[in-house]
Simulated assay, not measured.
Amino acid sequence: MGQCIYCGKPAGFLKKKHKKCEQQHEKGKSEIISLVGKIGAAGGDLHQLERSIERVASMSFIDKNTLKSLLVSGWERAVNIAFDDGLLSEKEESALIELKEHFALPEEILDKNGAYSKLEKGAVLRDIMNGTLPERIKIDVSLPFNFQKTEKVVWVFQGVNYYEEKTRTRYVGGSQGFSIRIAKGLYYRTGAFKGERVQTSETVYADTGLLGITNKHIYFAGSVKRFRIAYNKIVTFEPFSDGIGIQRDAQTVRPQLFETGDGWFTYNLIRNLAQL
């Protein structure tokens, strides 16, 4: 006779759980995530929240390890709720930090799916939009950039793929077959050259490296390519889901694309800094 993995009572021959217990368990998990998500974004009595969570966990056969993961999932949901309007307010940021500290949730676990980084990015954008250069970034790598005296590093992306647009030229429709000598040094008549030049543009991978964002420039440093671009030299910004494309004002310069993994943040960060 097997025992139910939830309530510990007999579950029947070759059975490991009661269907009712399983349903109560899943319902409790969803309820805890919902409770944490709601309070985490709006703020509230965290002690009352803790008591409610303990009550639901007890009724739903939720152990401590499972509860910890549910708190993380709830915090992630709270971050998404906070960003529903596209912006992170100071109140929402404070509520999320208080929730994190109350339940002693480590940053590295909260950032497993990028939620904690999203919180930091939202705070950085809010500072810039309010006309303040943020001082939140923690640089744990040696930067190869030669910054100017009045420059301030705002963000650094690592492992950025850099692409350039190239123009390819080919000829189509030209004469085919054997060449026939017409005169000394000549093998085709003028009218036989009917081929046309066709140019096509394509985006090609150029390098991978660090992308530094300051209050004045965009810096890139890879194993092959290294350059700096002033904001006042950029004429267009193009957002992508995983990065940003820019076009400088020089006629000979082709579009440049940076794959950062977060197009929303990259685009809003650079556009707002360019307007300061």
Score class of each variant (00 low, 15 high):
Gln3Lys: 13
Tyr6Lys: 00
Tyr6Asn: 03
Gly8Arg: 04
Lys9Tyr: 04
Pro10Cys: 13
Gly12Thr: 12
Phe13Trp: 13
Phe13Arg: 12
Lys16Ile: 14
His18Met: 03
Gln23Glu: 15
Gln23Gly: 03
Lys27Asn: 12
Gly28Gln: 03
Ile33Ser: 02
Ile33Arg: 00
Gly37Met: 09
Gly40Glu: 04
Ala42Tyr: 09
Gly43Cys: 04
Gly44Gln: 05
Asp45Val: 04
Asp45Phe: 08
Asp45Ser: 11
Leu46Tyr: 04
His47Pro: 00
Ser52His: 05
Glu54Leu: 15
Met59Val: 12
Ser60Ile: 01
Ile62Asn: 01
Ile62Trp: 01
Lys64Cys: 02
Lys68Ala: 12
Ser69Val: 06
Glu76Trp: 07
Val79His: 02
Ile81Met: 06
Asp84Ile: 11
Asp84Val: 11
Asp84Arg: 14
Gly86Glu: 07
Leu87Phe: 13
Leu87Met: 09
Leu88Ile: 08
Ile97Leu: 15
Leu99Ser: 03
Lys100Ala: 14
Glu101Gly: 03
Phe103Gln: 10
Pro106Arg: 06
Glu107Gly: 11
Glu107Asp: 14
Glu108Gln: 13
Ile109Val: 14
Asp111Val: 15
Ala115Thr: 03
Ser117Asn: 13
Lys121Thr: 13
Lys121Phe: 11
Ala123Cys: 10
Ala123Tyr: 05
Val124Ile: 14
Leu125Lys: 02
Asp127Cys: 10
Arg136Ser: 12
Ile137Glu: 14
Ile137Trp: 01
Asp140Phe: 04
Pro144His: 08
Pro144Leu: 10
Asn146Thr: 14
Thr150Asn: 15
Lys152Gln: 15
Val154Gln: 00
Gly159Gln: 12
Gly159Asn: 15
Val160Lys: 00
Asn161Phe: 02
Tyr163Asp: 02
Glu165Leu: 08
Lys166Asn: 06
Thr167Leu: 12
Thr169Pro: 03
Gly174Lys: 11
Gly174Val: 12
Gly174Met: 11
Phe178His: 06
Ile182Gly: 03
Gly185Met: 02
Tyr187Gly: 03
Tyr187Cys: 04
Gly191Lys: 11
Phe193Asn: 07
Lys194Phe: 00
Gly195Asn: 05
Glu196Phe: 02
Arg197Met: 09
Val198Cys: 11
Gln199His: 12
Val204His: 04
Ala206Met: 08
Gly209His: 03
Gly209Val: 07
Leu210Cys: 10
Thr214Pro: 08
Thr214Lys: 08
Asn215Ala: 12
Lys216Asp: 13
His217Glu: 07
Tyr219Glu: 05
Ser223Asn: 14
Arg226His: 06
Tyr231Thr: 04
Phe237Ser: 08
Phe237Ala: 03
Glu238Phe: 11
Glu238Ile: 12
Ser241His: 04
Ile244Cys: 03
Ile244Trp: 00
Ala250Leu: 15
Thr252Asp: 09
Phe258Leu: 12
Glu259Phe: 01
Trp264Ser: 06
Leu269Lys: 00
Asn272Ile: 01
Ala274Cys: 06
Gln275Ala: 13
